[in-house]
Simulated assay, not measured.
Amino acid sequence: MGRFISANVLRDMAKLDKNIVLEEDSVLTPSAKDLAKELGITISKGRQEIISHTVGGQSVGQLVNLQSSVKEVSVSSGTATDAESQSDDLKKAVQRILGEVLKPACENPKATHVKGETVVIQPFPEAPPGQKVGLVDVIDSRVGNLASGFMTFDHSKLPWFLNYDEVDYVIEGEFVLEVEGQVFRAKQGDVVYIPKGSQVVFSSPTFCKVFYATYPANWADFCD
């Protein structure tokens, strides 16, 4: 099983260097990828860069350069008016970028009908090697602010960090959830709620199929 890199682990690694190279079998949790974007951490596996930090189409370096330019112009101008003008320009640029980052997952939610016969559960690429975990979103941020879908576990486990709220409904089989020292053994018809910020282990000792709903809908943005 590959090494899972949580947000806390990544934060410690970033104290030494913000250009981080991971082993090929390492798996970043959603919160770790979000943290990388937040702190401007570049992450690579071998020679492949998997996260290059940008915000609203501009890199952190560009923002720093913009701020530096404002300071240089303010100093060289020697007038308070020019300094204030440049400061206002910087504020507007930052507000525009933040507006892009903080906008809703779906700007135009719409009623959607997904036919069951069209749903195909695919192997989950973030699952540890050898673990048979399937997952598919049927509602995502293209149509709503709340996502939903199906996942399966075939004698398998999936350590995970939830950077979002989730509700799970067991369709068939035995679904086991370990969270903060608690173990929930859910069967067909049971419902489980998991709050944002939980470090969990999903599993099934046999086989299970689960319907899930998450908020916000763009929980999978970390895979981008």
Rank of each mutant, 00 (worst) to 15 (best):
N8F: 00
R47K: 05
D82T: 15
F153E: 08
V73N: 15
V75R: 14
M13A: 04
L102Q: 05
V27D: 06
G173M: 00
V101T: 06
S85G: 09
K18M: 10
M1Y: 08
V101P: 02
Q67L: 08
M13Q: 08
F153W: 08
S77N: 09
D34Y: 03
P123L: 09
L158E: 11
V119Q: 15
P195K: 07
S77M: 02
F222A: 03
C223D: 09
D168E: 15
R142D: 03
I171N: 09
Y169C: 07
L28P: 13
G46K: 10
D88Y: 10
V27L: 15
S76N: 07
E84A: 13
R3W: 01
L135P: 11
S198L: 12
F222G: 03
K37G: 04
F153S: 06
P159Y: 13
S44P: 03
E38A: 03
S69I: 02
Q122D: 13
N19L: 11
G99Q: 09
E180T: 02
A217R: 11
V9H: 00
V136G: 11
V191P: 04
E84P: 06
Q122N: 12
A93C: 04
H113L: 13
I121V: 14
K115A: 13
E72N: 10
D17P: 10
G40P: 09
Q131M: 08
E84Y: 10
K196A: 08
P30V: 05
G173R: 00
E84V: 14
G40Q: 11
S31I: 03
K71Q: 14
I51C: 07
Q131F: 02
V210T: 15
T79R: 10
Q95M: 01
E178W: 01
D140H: 02
Y164A: 01
L162A: 10
T81E: 11
N65R: 14
K209T: 06
I97A: 06
A80L: 14
Q62T: 12
D221L: 02
N218P: 03
Q95P: 01
G2S: 15
V167Q: 15
S203Y: 05
P125C: 14
D224N: 10
E49R: 13
N108Q: 10
N163Y: 04
G99L: 03
R185M: 05
V73W: 12
K103L: 01
S87L: 15
D17M: 03
V55H: 06
E84I: 13
E100V: 09
T54D: 13
V114Q: 11
H155Y: 08
K103T: 00
E178R: 14
L63C: 08
F153K: 09
G197R: 11
S59Q: 12
A93L: 06
L28G: 07
F222D: 07
L39F: 04
K15S: 00
G130Y: 05
V179W: 00
A7T: 03
G181F: 09
D25P: 03
K92R: 15
Q188R: 15
A7F: 11
T42E: 15
I139Q: 13
S74F: 09
G46F: 05
V55R: 13
K18A: 06
I194F: 04
T206Q: 08
D34I: 02
N145G: 02
T79P: 07
Q62N: 09
Q86Y: 12
I50A: 01
G78P: 07
P195D: 04
L35P: 01
T206F: 09
A80G: 10
A220C: 01
P205V: 13
V201G: 13
Q86L: 11
K103H: 00
A36N: 05
